[in-house]
């Protein structure tokens, strides 16, 4: 097999252009390899590309690990980071990997969609910034081109003052989300809701957001309405992890609780 070990981004994108499979923390790719679903013979390891590990202000390098986000990320992203796999997984797995894998259950994704993050991608030809709703197109499907590498996540200049993350799973740790959610709210009431595991891609509950953003001091009935609207906007399915009905119910309950946390 052929393995590149670049230390610069230019060398990394060059290798990708030549057809190498990018390898970051390995926590997704190696499962595929171990289960013999994939067998990449030409691989570019990104662990030692310093630029990918860079994290400055609102630009988080794709190679930043969950371990680092857990301790220094924006509140809801740090809360999400703490639920990613195990300590071992958080030491290896990266936010870039979460985005590229694009699992509906990706723990970092509800936050990214809730704050309208953009995905920075780069090829040997140059780079572009892709809004999340253009980037994610289906279950584990993105618009990343074969010769492109995700290099960073761009968060907005200013983040909502209040943020809360929650994830439903039947085990206390190391569990794939049955439902994931992030609610953010600014001091002037603008609310966003990012949802995971209730659709083919991470989603926003736009109608619920619009309704609750217009209410300065939500009452019990506003909260109930919000909960119902989030449930209605979810697009869950039944699979071996849960049922459509439960996911629809739980996502509403969770969103409401997270909103309540933001309102306190």
């Amino acid at each position: 097999m052929h393995f590149h070990h670049p230390t610069t981004l230019a060398d990394a994108t060059q290798a990708v252009a030549e057809g190498a499979t990018p390898l970051a923390g390995g926590t997704d790719l190696m499962v595929e390899v171990n289960f013999r679903h994939r067998r990449p013979e030409h691989v570019v390891g990104l662990r030692k590309v310093e630029e990918l590990g860079a994290w400055e202000g609102n630009r988080i390098g794709a190679g930043v690990t969950w371990r680092r986000l857990e301790h220094g990320g924006p509140q809801a992203l740090a809360e999400a980071a703490r639920t990613v796999g195990s300590p071992q997984i958080r030491n290896a797995g990266t936010i870039g990997g979460n985005v590229v894998t694009a699992s509906p259950a990706g723990d970092g994704l509800p936050f990214l969609v809730a704050v309208d993050a953009k995905v920075e991608v780069m090829s040997a030809e140059g780079g572009r910034l892709v809004p999340w709703d253009v980037f994610f197109v289906g279950v584990k499907k993105t618009t990343l081109a074969a010769d492109e590498l995700v290099t960073a996540i761009h968060l907005p200049e200013s983040l909502p003052e209040r943020q809360a993350f929650g994830k439903v799973g039947v085990r206390s740790a190391m569990v794939i989300a049955t439902v994931g959610c992030v609610v953010t709210r600014t001091d002037d009431g603008k609310t966003t809701v990012g949802l995971g595991s209730v659709g083919p891609t991470p989603l926003r509950a736009s109608r619920a957001e619009e309704m609750i953003s217009s209410v300065t001091r939500p009452t019990e009935s506003d909260l109930a309405e919000f909960q119902k609207m989030v449930s209605d906007e979810a697009r869950p399915i039944t699979d071996h992890r849960s049922t459509e009905e439960y996911r629809r119910h739980a996502v509403g309950v969770l969103a409401r609780r997270l909103l309540e946390r933001c309102l306190r």
Binding site: F3, V33, V43
Partner: peptide, 26 residues
């Protein structure tokens, strides 16, 4: 072989990881 049990834990460059999810070539 999927990072869900920790039986293969090793220290890689100072951090504990699951060695089943580290590509040896890396």
């Amino acid at each position: 072989e999927q990072g869900e049990c920790g039986s293969c834990s090793v220290v890689l460059d100072g951090e504990i990881v699951c060695s089943c999810l580290v590509m040896a070539a890396d």
